[in-house]
């Protein structure tokens, strides 16, 4: 019996092994479309340059779950996430270099997005800017701010806007966010769940989500159903990438993995971002797609909140601002 088990395990281990060089990109949930388009681009470019055929594998799930899996042994050569906190977690575990954000340009984030409002066609409730979300009688749909990346961005975008108003104080920002939370009938379990709640179950007057998500909604539900509203100011969402040093050294794939991430900043990689409705860093490409990306003033998490670690402690840890406001709801 024991022997059979062992043999079976060995056979399966052998089944898992393969000769071709491969890279595994462990990524967040909704990045699939982007990397599905990007992987063939890079594979072709790499083959043209070196003659080597690369197999590129993708894994997508909730970002926090993904980095946990990498820490528990999922052999990712690169991680591509939607929040610095998740990569910092791996850096703290010693899997990723401590100065990962400096290893690539733009904070190691090849593209960005921002939080926008999705409203019903014709904007019946006249929602134009952040103050409208806190008015009584408005129902706001957003994912859970405590345990989803999308929700955290929504929360910090609202807080950041309030804090940057002339004469704003900590208390006024808190008061504004409290009023907004009172308008939320529920917290969706993730970005996609929030979209489904708003579009399919037709709950709420406004949905807070990434600009890039709006385009996916258009593809799925048709353009005639909703409008995108750009507030006066919003948060800059960065999507950082990093090499997993431990894996690339072990699997001897550092060269390929480095090139894979660098190519994200190439014109082809930047074009691919724009085509997936993510704002490219390259000004030339951004200009080319200007019609798709209205100019919007943005602030970063570093500027307003002193970085993700601090923002997480102040707002999302147990007993943080979210817990206080939510209890008093």
């Amino acid at each position: 019996m024991k022997r059979t088990l062992f043999t079976a395990a060995l056979a399966l281990a052998a089944f898992g092994a393969q000769a071709q060089t491969s890279l595994l990109n462990v990524s967040y949930d909704v990045a699939r479309d982007f990397y599905k388009d990007y992987n063939p681009l890079f594979a072709a470019a790499w083959k043209a340059k070196t003659g080597e055929t690369l197999e590129l594998k993708q894994s997508h799930a909730g970002s926090t779950k993904q980095v946990r899996a990498v820490a528990d042994g999922l052999e990712a050569d690169v991680v591509t996430m939607n929040q610095a906190t998740d990569i910092q977690f791996l850096a703290d575990k010693g899997l990723v270099a401590g100065d990962w954000a400096k290893k690539f340009p733009n904070n190691a984030s090849p593209y960005t997005s921002t939080m926008v409002f999705i409203v019903r066609k014709g904007n019946p409730k006249q929602i134009r800017n952040w103050p409208d979300l806190a008015k009584s009688g408005i129902s706001v749909i957003l994912p859970h701010p405590k345990n989803t990346g999308n929700g955290r961005y929504s929360y910090l975008a609202a807080w950041g806007w309030a804090q940057r108003q002339p004469g704003a104080t900590e208390a006024s920002a808190k008061g504004y966010v409290a009023a907004l939370l009172r308008n939320a009938p529920l917290f969706a379990s993730g970005g996609r769940d929030a979209t489904t709640t708003f579009m399919q179950r037709r709950l709420g007057d406004v949905l807070l989500t990434f600009e890039s998500e709006a385009e996916l909604i258009a593809k799925e539900f048709g353009r005639g159903e909703f409008e995108v509203v750009y507030p006066s100011e919003s948060i800059l969402a960065e999507f950082p990438v990093a090499l997993v040093d431990k894996t690339v050294d072990k699997r001897n794939t550092r060269k390929q993995a480095q090139a894979y991430l660098e190519y994200l900043w190439s014109p082809a990689g930047q074009e691919n971002a724009a085509q997936n409705y993510l704002r490219p860093r390259d000004p030339v490409v951004l200009k080319k797609y200007a019609a798709q990306f209205p100019v919007i003033k943005t602030f970063t998490v570093d500027e307003v909140f002193g970085g993700w670690t601090k923002a997480a402690t102040t707002h999302f840890k147990d007993g943080g601002s979210f817990d206080q406001l939510y209890v008093n709801k």
Binding site: A9, L12, A13, A71, D72, G73, L74
Partner: peptide, 24 residues
Amino acid sequence: IFGAQGWFGPWLAARDIKIIFAVP
């Protein structure tokens, strides 16, 4: 039990045997 930080994780990693996040 088998994860990188689990009981047998380091032993398995040293022998390059993949159990978790693989078919076994």
